[in-house]
């Protein structure tokens, strides 16, 4: 004679809970030696964003915990088989309803105020205040690699980025082709790179190290290979690095830019020791219907004329 196994709700609940804990343990074993980039900030912006994330998560627990509590309470108390004496088929309670409106309303009000302040505080376009000099970097997303131009040093790197710690980094970002997104999670959030547009991102590293960066927006077949390492050195090492790079033989000019922009995948990092002035502006402005004439600074009269005659049509 075999014993019939009776499935009760509590058995389902306990086995589900056990399986879930086991599952969490497996996940823990899988991740314990690895970096949680978003949760391991190496700079002020990433740190503030993480703090905000923790705050929002805690705030949402004010809703999640009661929801789970009430859910399991009603499941176990009011199942049909229990024949609860409290059964009230027409039950309604306006006061409780008001409470349900009020709790989320309260949480969202608090979070909204914080959001308004923090969105302004952590606006990626906002320059960071610091007594250290700012380092300008012009980032160009290409098919499928990143070009980083250091206009103040006359050098450029491809698929690698070197920055000094404690100096605010002012990124100008554009794209030569499809849209990408520049993201270095340990330093802070991302901003899109768009053709014909200039976006800005201001980050800072507070400790030396190597951080991973990449593109967060699909841009075609080589997209997965658009990641790079960010080396954060102290000021001295960075200066030494920058001056040593100027001896690199490769040169980036408006002429060789086309060649670089040709599609290529999984490009190994390399450096341009010399960079022609104004390349970044050329990339951003290449789609403008008429370009300023470099000789006299005036716009091309023919273009203006043809534009206005178009409007008259």
């Amino acid at each position: 004679m075999t014993k019939r196994i009776v499935i009760t709700p509590s058995k389902i609940f306990i086995s589900a809970l056990f399986l879930f804990l086991l599952f969490c343990f497996i996940l823990f074993l899988l991740v314990r030696h690895h970096t949680f980039a978003v949760l391991s900030p190496a700079g002020q912006i990433a740190q503030s964003e993480l703090n905000l994330m923790k705050f929002a998560a805690l705030l949402s627990l004010i809703v999640i915990i009661p929801v789970f509590g009430i859910l399991f309470y009603v499941i176990f108390t009011f199942r049909e088989s229990k024949k609860s004496k409290k059964y009230a088929p027409e039950y309604s309670n306006v006061l409780l309803e008001l409470v349900w409106w009020a709790i989320p309303l309260g949480i969202i009000t608090i979070l909204s105020i914080v959001t308004w302040n923090q969105t302004h505080q952590l606006d990626p376009f906002k320059s960071l205040s610091s007594n250290q000099t700012h380092v300008r970097i012009q980032a160009v997303a290409m098919n499928w690699k990143w070009l980083f131009i250091y206009p103040d040093y006359g050098i450029a790197t491809v698929n690698e980025l070197t920055i000094p710690t404690d100096h605010p980094i002012d990124f100008s970002i554009t794209s030569e082709g499809p849209m990408n997104s520049l993201w270095i999670p340990q330093l802070g959030g991302q901003i899109y790179a768009m053709a014909g547009m200039n976006t800005e991102l201001h980050l800072i590293a507070s400790k030396t190290g190597i951080y991973r960066g990449g593109s967060a927006n699909i841009s075609g077949s080589g997209f997965a290979g658009m990641h790079f390492n960010v080396s954060a050195f102290n000021t001295q090492t960075f200066s030494r690095w920058a001056s040593s790079m100027t001896f690199q033989p490769q040169t980036l000019t408006k002429g060789t830019l086309r060649q670089l922009a040709e599609p290529s995948e999984n490009v190994e990092p390399f450096v341009f020791g010399t960079v022609e002035n104004g390349i970044y502006d050329t990339i951003v402005n290449q789609y403008m219907p008429f370009q300023p004439d470099p000789d006299n600074g005036k716009t091309n009269a023919m273009s203006v004329h043809s534009m206005s005659s178009m409007e008259g049509m």
Partner: peptide, 17 residues
């Protein structure tokens, strides 16, 4: 809850895409 977090712009910068 994850959605509310993503709705805060500075958090979204870190979690978008």
């Amino acid at each position: 809850a994850a959605g509310v977090m993503l709705g805060v712009p500075p958090i979204d910068f870190q979690l978008h895409n």
